[in-house]
């Protein structure tokens, strides 16, 4: 049933929409090379790069659209790309 005035009561419900399927290129982050400058974290339009419990940055491929801003902005070339196989 449509809510009154189509109000959305569940904050951040867009997480149901897995935009990872949009990708043509997959960024791969090499944790060993990462200097934790946070560039990839802060510039990601999806917020798809987050710290894991060990303090390493990880790419969430459920949402990563493959824009590769992270790769372009990485100062130490810790991020590379591979073509997605369909």
């Amino acid at each position: 049933m449509v809510t009154i005035a189509a109000i959305i009561y569940e904050p951040g419900s867009s997480i149901k929409n897995k935009t990872g399927t949009w990708r043509t290129f997959r960024p791969i982050l090499d944790t060993n090379k990462c200097v934790k400058c946070e560039n990839c974290y802060i510039f990601c339009p999806e917020g798809a790069i987050q710290e894991d419990e060990n303090g390493n940055f990880k790419i969430d491929y459920d949402y990563c659209k493959g824009c590769l801003i992270c790769m372009n902005e990485c100062p130490v070339n810790a991020i590379t790309k591979v073509r997605e196989e369909k």
Binding site: S13, R23, Y63
Partner: peptide, 16 residues
């Protein structure tokens, strides 16, 4: 940078 994400992924913005 603060870690709290108040803007959720899954939005329909273009890649980049």
């Amino acid at each position: 940078f603060p870690r709290e994400e108040l803007f959720a992924p899954g939005h329909r913005g273009c890649a980049g």
